[in-house]
Amino acid sequence: MEIRELAVPGAWVVTPRRFQDERGTFVESFKASEFEKATGRPFELHQVNCSVSAAGVLRGIHYTEDPPGQAKYVTCVRGAFLDVVVDLRPGSPTYGRWDSVLLDDVDRRSVFLSEGLGHAILSLEDESTVTYLCSIEYTPESDRDLDAFDPRLGIEWPKVGRDGTPLTYLRSPKDAAAPPFS
């Protein structure tokens, strides 16, 4: 397992070793001891979510007010997503910076986001499926959203899916009405 920090401190990409034979593939996608060694912190699990999306579905930018904040461990189990992390921690030297990682069912990477970071995913093909391991249970009163297309953030969203087909972005009404970063 390889774990490296992204350009947004507090976010890591985890690339597991894959074991393949005639039966299929085995992946160890999380190991507490290796995670704690690389990140310097434990990950306490309180909720697991699963989301299935059509190509072009854009979910986010979502975050939970900090405190309490919500850490997430995100894995694509089918298809492909562009996973985007945004630093929303006031006073952080990287406040407003974003980074992205391709999560797919080939490399089986995961992304860990610390509390205070925003998160969005864009599905790059139909039936893409992602799981979120969450450090706290969903708390609607602390849930917040930002406009994923805010020019101040300047996120470079792909215009084509994994198969080269043009993407038509689809957001929930809540995400489409989200306020700008500023």
Rank of each mutant, 00 (worst) to 15 (best):
residue 108 R to P: 03
residue 132 Y to Q: 09
residue 123 S to H: 03
residue 128 S to N: 05
residue 136 I to H: 15
residue 73 Y to M: 09
residue 60 G to P: 03
residue 48 V to E: 13
residue 82 L to I: 13
residue 109 R to H: 13
residue 42 P to R: 14
residue 175 D to R: 01
residue 88 L to G: 01
residue 104 D to A: 08
residue 163 D to E: 11
residue 146 L to C: 08
residue 53 S to Q: 04
residue 144 R to L: 05
residue 141 E to Y: 10
residue 31 K to M: 07
residue 81 F to Y: 06
residue 75 T to G: 04
residue 171 R to G: 03
residue 130 V to A: 11
residue 64 T to Y: 03
residue 45 L to I: 14
residue 119 H to T: 07
residue 138 Y to G: 04
residue 68 P to W: 10
residue 157 W to I: 06
residue 132 Y to G: 05
residue 159 K to Q: 15
residue 141 E to M: 12
residue 161 G to A: 06
residue 21 D to Y: 12
residue 36 E to D: 10
residue 69 G to Q: 07
residue 2 E to V: 07
residue 132 Y to E: 07
residue 49 N to V: 09
residue 167 L to Q: 02
residue 6 L to C: 09
residue 90 P to W: 05
residue 180 P to C: 10
residue 86 V to Q: 02
residue 98 W to T: 14
residue 44 E to R: 14
residue 170 L to R: 15
residue 137 E to L: 08
residue 154 G to N: 08
residue 104 D to W: 01
residue 112 F to C: 11
residue 154 G to D: 07
residue 58 L to N: 01
residue 152 R to C: 07
residue 169 Y to L: 09
residue 95 Y to W: 14
residue 77 V to R: 01
residue 154 G to H: 08
residue 21 D to S: 12
residue 125 E to R: 00
residue 68 P to T: 09
residue 71 A to V: 10
residue 106 V to D: 14
residue 156 E to L: 13
residue 94 T to S: 15
residue 166 P to V: 04
residue 141 E to K: 15
residue 129 T to P: 02
residue 99 D to F: 10
residue 127 E to R: 14
residue 77 V to L: 15
residue 111 V to M: 12
residue 80 A to F: 00
residue 30 F to H: 15
residue 27 V to Y: 01
residue 151 P to L: 02
residue 20 Q to D: 12
residue 61 I to H: 00
residue 144 R to W: 06
residue 64 T to C: 14
residue 127 E to Y: 11
residue 4 R to F: 11
residue 112 F to K: 06
residue 80 A to N: 05
residue 85 V to I: 15
residue 159 K to D: 10
residue 133 L to H: 14
residue 39 T to R: 07
residue 178 A to T: 03
residue 46 H to M: 12
residue 26 F to I: 12
residue 68 P to Q: 07
residue 67 P to Q: 11
residue 181 F to K: 02
residue 168 T to E: 12
residue 128 S to Q: 03
residue 139 T to F: 05
residue 128 S to A: 15
residue 25 T to P: 05
residue 66 D to M: 10
residue 165 T to Y: 00
residue 95 Y to L: 14
residue 124 L to G: 00
residue 150 D to K: 09
residue 56 G to T: 00
residue 155 I to Y: 06
residue 46 H to T: 05
residue 66 D to C: 14
residue 121 I to M: 12
residue 36 E to G: 04
residue 107 D to Y: 09
residue 95 Y to T: 06
residue 41 R to Y: 06
residue 138 Y to V: 05
residue 62 H to F: 05
residue 23 R to T: 12
residue 169 Y to C: 03
residue 39 T to C: 13
residue 120 A to Q: 03
residue 30 F to Y: 15
